[in-house]
Amino acid sequence: MDITLTINGERRTLPLEDPRVTLLDALRQHLDLPGTKKGCDHGQCGACTVMLNGRRINACLTLAVMHQGDEITTIEGLGTPEALSPLQAAFIRHDGFQCGYCTPGQIVSATAMLAEFREGWPSNVSNDLSAPRLDDEEIRERMSGNLCRCSCYPNIVDAIRETAESVA
């Protein structure tokens, strides 16, 4: 069966002979978008984070066939080497990565996280559920679904905080 979905603003048709294909493998193997990484394939690392209709999800834990008509944003849709998004530029400035493998997931996740924060969503470390403040502890908790074994966490937090402040 064919499914049609919008990826990074572009309408794409994905021929699917096998419903077992995850959204992650569809992106990487069928749609030539290998920027989204596979770290664990079980939703345990966040390397495959993409946005589904504006919300960050693990692309490994959903089937491509379930996304007829959906809008997907991957790392390739956020910026290019010639036109970086503010977060992408901040990750470079703050050295928010080393090996770079978790980085697309971190950046997509952080992009969506800032949107969640702007909507007023609380987190597990929010003292006040109704009015969370984006301090470092909040950023750390909200980004804990993205593991980084090079352990650039402090730099990731710096990059996100700076971007949040400059956007705000």
């Binding site: 290998p34 991957t74 910026g79 290019t80 970086l84 992408q88 530029a89 770079g100």
Partner: peptide, 15 residues
């Protein structure tokens, strides 16, 4: 800054 940084942050560094 890492010279390969722009590739890594845009998903265009190929592993």
């Amino acid at each position: 800054d890492r010279p390969e940084g722009k590739l890594k942050v845009t998903g265009t560094a190929s592993y």
